[in-house]
């Protein structure tokens, strides 16, 4: 999967104006994120542990540190 492009935003004044207006951009990127997630969910079903219950049960670690 390609690396995510780094978001470069102009450094805004921080949080003095609390009211954040809904940016049209946000929903656009929201849709993109949703599409990416769907694609990923389709894809990972193939690599998920086949017997989840046994896998979780048998994952026991002795203490450390």
């Amino acid at each position: 999967m390609p690396e995510r492009e780094q978001k470069k935003k102009p450094a805004p004044q921080r949080r003095d104006d609390e009211v954040v207006e809904e940016e049209p951009q946000a929903s656009e990127s929201g849709t993109k994120i949703k599409a990416e997630l769907d694609e990923l969910l389709d894809e990972i079903d193939d690599v998920l542990e086949t017997n989840a219950e046994d896998f979780v049960k048998s994952y026991i670690q002795k203490g450390g540190e």
Binding site: P2, L40, E43, I44, V47, E53, V56
Partner: peptide, 21 residues
């Protein structure tokens, strides 16, 4: 719960973290 563990699997093919790009 299984995915929660598998996220941290280091094998590139199995690691959910690596799959997320």
């Amino acid at each position: 719960a299984a995915m929660d563990l598998q996220y941290h699997d280091l094998r590139p093919g199995s690691s959910l973290a690596r799959r997320l790009g």
